[in-house]
Write a protein that binds this DNA or RNA. Structure first.
Length: 486
RNA sequence: GUCUCCAUCGUCUAGGGGUUAGGACACCAGGUUUUCAUCCUGGCAGCGGGGGUUCGAUUCCCCCUGGAGAUGCCA
């Protein structure tokens, strides 16, 4: 049987790192096995549905280069792929369950449920429905139904059974049926299915072979097994993925840092770095290799090497991956990624002038080794395009030197800068060395004030290259400017 | 509370009855260098505890501990 895998997000929030990891495993498993990757929208919670998250889903998938074979916009013979468009189907199957005696209508009001819950809490009993309506006589149930009373459909959980399933990652998992929540709701009052019903019905109808989902679903899988039994269907294979944690071992959340895919995109992470890092969170290839292209993953990903235990998300390592990928990337691509940022920050005009574009292109060498994320670029390049707003004089004064000495050094720089453009870097360096000897300081002590004069900071790209790009004459202006302020 | 899952350096992981327990990030030190970064070299650091099984357990089994998740008309 050919592999069919689905990613089934519910559009109630933005795609976060856990979602990304799940669909990456879905996708690459499908690809590596020559199977189909299906996108299904689980919008069964009307109250939490939100349009923005739907757009975010598509944006995220597209950004990371993940395409699907079937989905809302790609009919593949198993549609519709949006659960809110399949309501009749779920109702039909719920009715079938009732007709077969596997489920029943429950007319208990929310008020009764709340009261029950409170009583259970007071008596320190286990929570759960007391099966009041399961014990209704058929006539009574029918009468209430015909009276138009609102109801939900609940599955009858059998007593005294052990429900087992085999997880492809975790192995055999068992649970006693009495530990499964008594008689979970399948169909809500509003006619929408719960996750459990919709998921089981759709996975079966869409002939899903492997269900990938987070480990938080393990406790409800026995329930799903019971549902497959009630329908007389063969369950798919289950693959419960380890959870992603924050540094403190708690479930990853905002307080650990960014968690939404779009935030990483906005910060200037490359999609391939993101994919590579995320796939390594819970999966490994061997004892050393850790760089994988999209195509390689689509060939090499497998279930055997998926880890069982939860993984802590390491922002530092992601950053390292990103730096590695930026350095390997085509310069033009990286420039095009930060070009809009330069415009946004008003560093260059919009549209850029010809001179600005040339300078952006020529200056790439200044940043390529220094970028961890794309968004670092504006800060590194700003000095080439904009005047230094204010000098921190202290920065300009090297260690073991004073203000006067620094002034003298800067004046010395002016002499060397004269005719700078006409000489090679080697020649210029030699001149700076001579000058520093003449002034009785080290080369670093002469270059630091110059660096501050040109860039406004003590940390910058290499001096000579920067001077060449910016122009020796204009550099001299900045040096004079700084001297005047000292 | 109850149920379920998990457990190798700080983090991601490889390994597996006999290994100097391997790699990567981070960190530290050194080198290259005009600062930063890159790059190179080296270093620090780990099998949670207790019982078994065995000639021998980090590896297999049990218990404990620790961590996480689930206990919704949310997914």
């Amino acid at each position: 049987m050919s592999v069919r895998v689905r990613y089934a997000p519910s559009p109630t929030g933005l795609q976060h790192l856990g979602s990304v990891r799940t669909f990456l495993f879905d996708y690459f498993f499908a690809r590596a096995n020559g199977g189909k990757f299906i996108l299904r929208i689980e919008d069964t919670d009307q109250s939490r549905f939100n349009e923005e998250s739907l757009q975010d889903l598509y944006d995220t998938l597209n950004w990371l280069g993940i395409d699907w074979d079937e989905g809302p916009d790609k009919e593949g013979g198993y549609g519709p792929y949006i659960q809110s468009q399949r309501l009749e189907l779920y109702k039909e199957y719920a009715e079938k369950l009732i007709a077969d005696g596997k489920a029943y209508r429950c007319f208990c009001t929310p008020e009764r449920m709340e009261k029950l819950r409170e009583e259970q809490k007071d008596n320190k009993q286990d929570y759960g429905y007391d099966r009041h309506c399961r014990n209704l006589s058929e006539e009574e149930s029918q009468r209430l139904y015909e009276s138009g009373a609102p109801y939900v459909v609940r599955l009858k959980i059998p007593d005294g059974r052990e429900v087992a399933f085999h997880d492809e990652i975790l192995g055999d998992i068992k649970r006693k049926s009495r530990d499964i929540s008594p008689d979970p709701v399948m169909l809500k009052t509003d006619g929408f299915p719960t996750y459990h019903l919709a998921c089981v019905v759709d996975d079966h109808l869409m002939e899903i072979t492997h269900v990938f989902r987070g480990q938080e679903w393990i406790p409800s899988t026995p329930l799903h097994i019971l549902m497959y039994e009630a329908f007389g269907w063969e369950p798919p294979k289950f693959c419960h993925l380890p959870l992603i944690m924050g540094k403190d071992g708690k479930k990853l959340s905002k307080r650990h840092g960014s968690t939404f895919a779009r935030e990483f995109r906005a910060m200037g992470y490359l999609p391939e770095a993101m994919v590579n890092y995320m796939i390594m969170l819970g999966w490994s290839y061997d004892d050393t290799r850790e760089f994988f292209s999209h195509d390689e993953l689509a060939e090499l990903f497998n279930l055997e090497r998926v880890n069982k235990s939860p993984a802590v998300f390491d922002y530092k390592k992601l950053e390292w991956f990103n730096g590695q990928y930026i350095r390997k990337a085509d310069p033009e691509r990286i420039q095009n990624l930060y070009l809009p940022l330069l415009k946004e920050e008003g560093i260059i005009s919009d549209p850029p002038t010809e001179d600005e574009m040339k300078l952006v292109k020529d200056s790439y060498g200044l940043v390529q080794e220094r970028l961890k994320v794309i968004n670092d670029a504006p800060g590194l390049l700003r000095f080439l395009f904009k005047e230094i707003e204010s000098y921190n004089i202290e920065d300009a004064i090297p260690k073991k030197m004073d203000r006067e000495g620094t002034k003298t050094v800067l004046k010395g720089c002016l002499e060397v800068l004269d005719g700078f453009a006409g000489r090679s870097d080697e020649e210029n360096e030699e001149l700076f060395r001579q000058k520093s000897e003449e002034l009785g300081v080290k080369l670093g002590q002469i270059l630091q004030p110059l660096r501050v004069a040109l860039t406004g900071t003590t940390v910058s790209p290499p001096m000579f290259e920067s001077i060449r790009l910016f122009g020796a004459e204009r550099t001299m202006e900045r040096v004079k400017n700084l001297i005047a302020q000292m």
